[in-house]
Design a protein around this nucleic acid. Structure first.
Lengths: 143, 143
DNA sequence: TTCACACCTTGAAGCTACTATAGGGTCAAG
DNA sequence: CTTGACCCTATAGTAGCTTCAAGGTGTGAA
């Protein structure tokens, strides 16, 4: 099959497939005489694996880790479990961060219930007077 | 004051200040004869406002919106309230997404409790066989 | 044959919000 | 006169793509 069909199987665009190839997540495809990339079912499997990982918000780095571990099918899968545990920890950390953020925003929002003049708005006052604390390193890659 | 001091007041780096100037969040600074940027207390206020918004994970776009609204101090602050409400909705949406993600990851993690061979690992089986659903547009800018 | 049209190719630029690096200029103290 | 702290610009890199530009390929119809 050609790139369009593969992309469809992987629920992504052709550009994304080329991008994965460039980044080494997918191996370089064989080519037809016209220089078209050609794929088989092994590529479909690998692409779907990658897309599933992406759907779970794993980074390319994490996915690469899993793919590397899969290269030794007989070895122990402790590394896989560890990688997933770390990823779950990232998600947890981000949820915690966002919950704190939401509390802060809710507090700010309470400072202006009615429509009033911009220069008396409690929200803007709050934003102007907050004490910015130096941003610490993010606990997760999840934005 | 010069850029180093301003950056310190805003809990950010000098590069970040220059970046904000380039992006139009901060007005172009006056210069000394030696071409050094010079700032006063109004700049400090504006930078702190921006940094506080960033600490709340607002985008530059959202911050620009607030700054624009502040340019008309006498006008009604309904726009400010709306902007904040939308931002809170972004945070909420992201929390919901991440909670769903966490459930999915927990289900996946259960598929392999003990260390076994990689090619029999339930996690990798799960990742290979999941049905990727076409990724819908993100409900928030929060990664 | 020639045309349209769908499909494929590459490379480069754009997105967010910075961070880092290179290669230089300014200025006060020792 | 040199050291060191501070400042300047411009460029490239980060993640994970998306979009654009400018073209080549292949098939069916007029």
């Amino acid at each position: 099959m050609r790139i369009g069909e593969l992309a469809q199987m992987g629920q992504c665009t052709e550009q994304t497939v080329r991008y994965y190839e460039k980044k080494g997540l997918l191996p370089a495809a064989a080519r037809t005489e016209a220089n078209y990339r050609i794929y088989d079912s092994a590529h479909v499997e690998r692409l779907r694996f990658i897309r599933n990982c992406r759907a779970l918000d794993m980074t390319h780095e994490e996915i690469r880790g899993l793919l590397d571990l899969m290269e030794q099918p007989a070895s122990d899968c402790g590394g896989v479990n560890g990688l997933l545990d770390e990823h779950i920890a990232h998600v947890d950390a981000r949820i915690t961060e966002l919950a704190a953020l939401k509390r802060q925003l809710a507090g700010l929002r309470e400072r202006c219930q009615s429509n009033q003049a911009v220069n008396e708005c409690g929200i803007l006052e709050g934003l102007a007077s907050m004490e910015t604390e130096p941003r610490r390193a993010p606990q997760s890659h999840l934005g």
